[in-house]
C-alpha cells in the first residue's frame, strides 16, 4: 500500500537547485534508503517532506492526501516523524521528559504521556536512567533518545537523517536491529544514510540522489550494480566488493 508519494518536487535556493523534479514512492511497511554524495539534496528533500522547507514546485502526498508545504507541526500530527542529522535533543530536560514531549503529540494528559514514554524507552533499550539529563548521555544514546522521542509521537512514517554517522560497528549493529524492531511494529522507515554497510542489508528499496536529481532507484542489489550510481557515489571498489 502506498504511504508516501512525491510528484516532481523541486526546491531552489536562489540559483542553486537542491532538488530537481523528484518523484518517488514509499510503500507501507518498507524500509527505504536515500543515498547520495554530500550536497546531493538528501536532507533538503527530508526538510521539504516534513515541512521545514517549502517546495517551489511539485507535490507531497501522504496516504493519498496532499501535505505539500503544511507546517512542520501539522505534518507531525498527520503521522510523519523525523530525526535530525545533528542531534537535537532537549539538553536541559531529562531523558524521560524528552520522550514525554513526543508522547504529548497523541496524549492530552502528562500522566498518560509519561506511561507511553516509559513504554517507548523500554522498546529503545536506552540502558540509561530516565531521570538523567539528556546532555549527560553518550553520543549514541542521544541518537537513540531522539529516535525514542520521534517514536513517541506515534508516526506511521519515520524519516531518519544519518542515524549511523559517527557510530562504531557494534553500535551500528545495535541500531540496525533496533530499526528492524521498529519496522516490525508496522512503522515505515525512510532513511538517509552514508554508511553503506548499514543501509544496504537493511533497506527494501534504495533511492539515489546526485546533484539534486534522482539518478537511480531499486533494490539494494540493483543499486550496487548500477553504473551511474557506481560512478557518482559508490565507487569501483564497493561494486567489486559486493
Amino acid at each position: 500500500m502506498l504511504l508516501l508519494r512525491l510528484e516532481g518536487v523541486t526546491k531552489r535556493f536562489g540559483g542553486l537547485i537542491a532538488n530537481r523534479d523528484i518523484s518517488l514512492e514509499v510503500q507501507r511497511g518498507q524500509i527505504v534508503g536515500l543515498i547520495g554524495p554530500n550536497g546531493a539534496g538528501k536532507t533538503t528533500l527530508f526538510n521539504v517532506i516534513t515541512g521545514f522547507q517549502k517546495a517551489d514546485d511539485g507535490k507531497v502526498l501522504f496516504k493519498g492526501q496532499e501535505i505539500t508545504n503544511l507546517s512542520a507541526h501539522a505534518i507531525c500530527k498527520k503521522g510523519i516523524g523525523r530525526t535530525f542529522q545533528i542531534v537535537r535533543t532537549f539538553k536541559d530536560m531529562t531523558v524521560l521528559e524528552n520522550v514525554i514531549v513526543g508522547a504529548l503529540n497523541r496524549y492530552g494528559s502528562t500522566v498518560a504521556a509519561k506511561e507511553r514514554a516509559l513504554e517507548v524507552l523500554d522498546l529503545i533499550q536506552l540502558g540509561a536512567d530516565p531521570e538523567t539529563k539528556a546532555s549527560a548521555l553518550t553520543f549514541v544514546n542521544q541518537r537513540r533518545l531522539e529516535l525514542a522521542r520521534a517514536l513517541a509521537t506515534e508516526p506511521e512514517l519515520l524519516l531518519l537523517d544519518e542515524m549511523m554517522a559517527g557510530l562504531n560497528n557494534t553500535e551500528i549493529k545495535e541500531v540496525t536491529d533496533l530499526l528492524r524492531r521498529i519496522r516490525d511494529r508496522g512503522i515505515t522507515l525512510f532513511i538517509v544514510e552514508h554508511v553503506m554497510e548499514a543501509i544496504m542489508p537493511l533497506a527494501d528499496r534504495v533511492v539515489v540522489l546526485d546533484f539534486g536529481e534522482k539518478i537511480s532507484e531499486g533494490t539494494p542489489s540493483e543499486i550496487c550494480s548500477d553504473k551511474a550510481v557506481i560512478e557518482a557515489y559508490l565507487g569501483e571498489q564497493y561494486a567489486r566488493g559486493e
Binding site: G81, F84, R88, F90, G102, L104, S109, A150
Partner: peptide, 24 residues
C-alpha cells in the same frame, strides 16, 4: 507541570525539534 509547561521548555531548548514533535 502541565502539557503547556513541557511544550514551553521544549520550545526554549530547540524550537525546530519541538516543531518536529507536533508542537505549534
Amino acid at each position: 507541570k502541565s502539557k503547556m509547561g513541557f511544550y514551553w521548555r521544549a520550545i526554549r531548548s530547540d524550537p525546530d525539534a519541538a516543531e518536529s514533535l507536533g508542537i505549534d
